[in-house]
Design a protein around this nucleic acid. Structure first.
Lengths: 218, 218
DNA sequence: TCAATATTTTAGATTAATCTAAAATAATAA
DNA sequence: TTATTATTTTAGATTAATCTAAAATATTGA
């Protein structure tokens, strides 16, 4: 098995490469893991030795198939635990990230598969992010940012691309949580803000910055 | 907060001192933590510096009040997770120890208190061991070993003092699980084995070794 | 294209947890 | 009571993960 630390590096590389095989730089990893570039270089050598990444000095890094599947497994655990925390223990969606960050390193396949069943094999976590199934397959939904929608279009809020507690709390306050139906009432040319109708009743205006981080299923 | 490793030492000292302030030796700790005496000595100095233990060179160790409460908290977490694994995820009572050993180090008071409520504030874990409440108080039940019972006495199996998977599986097979009512039918003088009647129906004989590790509420 | 800037790696230390082997202390038994 | 044995501690290394500062490499823009 891989150490707690190795797992965090794999996860960082995974997220930085958009869950793909895209090349990631040392500095990006350093920023995401809150370490220094020199430390990252050391770890990259180690992960390359273990065949979890493809690493060429000064050129950057990609996950190998083994590394990708290890990373996906960590993401699966993280998201399932988040569902547990919200659905079963009653946490708010902005409170679960840090706890899931610890729980994701618990190592037991039978635990996680039983948890998956206990939760009813959810397709997405409390933020709408898809949960990889036990084979590691991720069933992506096609989602669009509110900021890319046209006037008159409608859809259901199904995800966010910003996971900070401040942002999530704001959406909560605005009533723009997952499952909310929205219609684009008007695009304000002046500052890019957008007037929307939520659940056929409430009218509100959100900034472009907010609109960019809300994902809608049309 | 304390490191994973420090927590394991505290827990070891706690168990070795019977949850009390009894003096524990370096070698005992080394055996319980699967380390060498020299490593234990190093850690004892560290824990003493942090005021978690009272340590006198060559004399042994006791937990301070702070150390005791930290240890009790770990035990609380361990036992609550065991209840979760058995009651909610359907694990057998002999399968949960190792997983709970990892989960007990997850650090969040709100998590563990919510889990406690979710489980219905259980008084004991799947092996009958008492679960400390959120203030750290342990409500002990008076239990006696079957090996100390007299002919004709009866009671309910409410705990075990041996937690190995082999032993627990044996009890499972014999039908001597928690909640089973037993009556001491006969004490066999020859080898100390004991004939018992379980749930008023099944008669069976258990060795003295087995009898010593089953705890009964009279 | 090449000099300035940015990025990445190497070199050399540090900290936590561990080890083995040797020294110090305690316990025990003749 | 003292010699032998057992326990515990110290001394000195090792491994994983990290750091800072300096060196190496890559990128950029005049």
């Amino acid at each position: 098995m891989h150490s707690f630390t190795e797992e965090n590096y794999l996860k960082a590389i995974y997220h930085l490469s958009d869950g793909n095989h895209r090349v990631v730089s040392t500095n990006q990893i350093a920023e995401m893991t809150n370490t220094k570039a020199a430390s990252v270089t050391d770890m990259l050598k180690k992960l390359a030795d273990k065949n979890l990444i493809n690493y060429i000095k000064y050129q950057g890094v990609t996950l190998t198939d083994t590394g990708l599947s290890a990373a996906v497994n960590i993401v699966r655990k993280h998201r399932l635990w988040e569902v547990f925390l919200v659905e079963k223990l009653g946490f708010k969606w902005d409170e679960v990230h840090d706890i899931a960050e610890e729980l994701e390193h618990i190592n037991s396949t039978s635990l996680i598969n039983r948890l998956d069943d206990f939760l009813g094999n959810p397709a997405a976590d409390p933020h709408g992010d898809p949960i990889p199934d036990r084979s590691g397959t991720i069933h992506h939904k096609k989602l669009v940012k509110i900021s890319n929608m046209k006037q008159g279009q409608s859809g259901t809020i199904s995800g966010v691309s910003e996971h900070s507690s401040v942002f999530l709390k704001l959406l909560e306050k605005l009533g723009l949580t997952l499952g909310t139906n929205i219609i684009i009432a008007e695009l304000i040319e002046f500052d890019g803000s957008i007037m929307i109708t939520a659940d056929q009743t409430k009218e509100l205006t959100i900034s472009r910055e907010v609109a960019k981080n809300i994902l809608v299923m049309l």
